[in-house]
Write a protein that binds this DNA or RNA. Structure first.
Lengths: 329, 329
DNA sequence: ATGAAAGCGCTAACAC
DNA sequence: GTGTTAGCGCTTTCAT
């Protein structure tokens, strides 16, 4: 494998000059520049990234923490991140946490060993106090997440407003018994609940603890929870879900049980994934601009890296959510 | 940032001994080992990955080329690759080609600059002759792809058998006019067509060139092509699609036009994505074990890296496809 | 069992 | 405009 020294020897120049040519520095005469380019081609030379990274103390690689690759909403975010990353010469290392606290921490090791310049969290499993120490090693951006105590930039969607909008919509449709499905206990979930209960309380509606369901993420969860709802003596007439996958499975399960959506039971999705407009009836849902949020997070990351933006103090960038009314409510 | 030299100085040992401890080498006394470990913790030392990579001439990073992150089938493959990668201490760099020949080649630059140890293609845009030269720089594995001339390991699904199975099924259902949607002109598409026409010819059925549609990948494509099909004077009674996304959109579009699936028109999917069993009617489709194929490809990659497997000669590993009969045919 | 030292390939002062 | 040289942080002979 040809090195910079080989090119230097071949051209009769010094490695410094070759390096200047590689990095497009000025103050190199045109003929030498051409000489070097020709030699590089001739020798099949390519600069060694590890050597460069070692010298430059940077890698142009970002770690993206994502709970599940097979969750379309997160791949949408990833797509947005990728778009900006590629436009700015950054590579992405994919870190699937599978919602494991331990894995999340393990991946932060990439920061300490300088394998990546920084980290973008698209979800966060550990308490902030466990993450905080790692901010010393490089920019950490929260994307689609929020922690009150976090002292880093956060790009998020206004979950309070989004769930408030959706719940208001259900209430306006005349529903008074609304089941609520939540995911984890993250800040995001917390906010959604805030918006939900804000609408509920404004309308002076009663809420039963039986109507609250935890840990609903997947289609399987949706099916399971829907069956539980059917068992209820006092059955809700509408369901607020935490995602279109869950909602889709519920619509499906309702149909299986001969129930009409939305007449017998209304179901509200979240995300507005492609599937939302593909099933029958189409899902009323909350549109989350996943790619925009991802793109924005990566932009903020680059700003931090370039020192244009303060990376170790809290900053919240919030994008709005919107209600998409279709046929399931 | 603490370096190995700092740890050496702090413990009064040499950097060589510290290195031995870091790498769990034998021939280090227990007390020194403990001494070093304590010092590393005390100083907040972490080995620098770039330096290690430079020395060791390897990165433990693999580039995965994928056309679109938002395509669920490819993220399924990615999930399988990730599972094996993480179990073996490899990181994945994500390379979204967006089906661009140029980007595909650009990403191969990661191999030449030694930023990755090798590359896994989950789809391939360029002719093999353009890829071939890069095999000199490290293992290249084809996953879900096939090229006759390719001199590398290929992990693939038996597309001929899969599309044959699906087409046979349509024929057995009594269909004699079957539209065929294809994607690119890759080896994979080629094989699918082989299987399709094998079944068609066996049954002695006529095929019209009007019934063949190219470049159908997305839901939008599905909608567009379905509308074209409706315009046809001699309209097919069944459609063989290249993926569940396309098929789902077609089912949806059929419904929009007041057509009953499968009575008025039968639609066959491909992949068996989650959506297939979520829409109404549920899709009959060809199940493709995406995660298995991904996992297998990563396993083969590691074998190549370890020299257990020949990396520069053709080897084909083929997994079977199966027909999942539901309600759309 | 431990240490000295060379060198992986590159960049950036600093000289001229 | 070009060259000399000293590292970046780590691993690995080769001594002892």
């Amino acid at each position: 494998m040809a090195t910079i020294a080989d090119v230097a020897k071949y051209t009769g120049l010094s490695s410094a000059t070759v390096s200047r040519v590689i990095n497009d520095y000025p103050h190199v005469s045109e003929d030498k520049r051409k000489l070097v380019h020709d030699a590089m081609k001739e020798l099949g030379y390519f600069p060694n990234t590890s050597a460069r990274n070692l010298r430059n103390r940077k890698t142009n690689v970002v770690a993206v923490l994502i709970p599940r690759l097979t969750n379309p909403f997160f791949t949408l975010i990833l797509d947005g991140i990728e778009r900006v990353a590629e436009a700015n010469g950054f590579q992405l290392i994919i870190c699937q946490t599978k919602s494991s606290k331990k894995k999340e921490i393990d991946f932060l090791n990439l920061l300490q060993t300088k394998q990546v310049d920084g980290v973008i969290f698209t979800s966060i499993e550990n308490e902030w106090e466990y993450i905080q120490p790692y901010t010393a090693y490089g920019p950490i951006i929260l994307c689609n997440e929020y922690h009150h105590e976090a002292t880093v930039p956060m790009v998020r969607l206004d979950q309070i407003q989004g769930s408030y909008l959706g719940t208001r919509h259900l209430i306006e449709k005349g529903h008074k018994k609304i089941a609520y499905c939540m995911g984890s206990t993250s800040g995001l979930s917390f906010d959604r609940r805030l918006g939900f209960f804000k609408a509920i309380e404004e309308a002076g509606i009663d809420m039963k603890s039986d109507w609250i369901f935890r840990d609903t993420y997947t289609m399987e969860d949706g099916k399971r929870v829907f069956q539980q709802i059917l068992q209820l003596s006092d059955r809700p007439t509408a369901i607020f879900t935490g995602g279109d996958e869950v909602a889709s499975a519920m619509v499906k399960e309702a149909r299986t049980h001969g129930l009409h959506v939305p007449r017998d039971i209304a179901i509200l999705g979240f995300d507005d994934q492609p599937i939302a407009s593909l099933i029958e009836p189409e899902l009323t849902t909350i549109y989350q601009p996943g790619d925009e949020i991802g793109a924005r997070a990566m932009t903020v990351f680059i700003e931090c890296l370039n020192g244009i933006r303060e990376r170790m103090s809290q900053a919240v960038i919030e994008l709005p959510l919107s209600l998409v009314i279709r046929d399931s409510t």
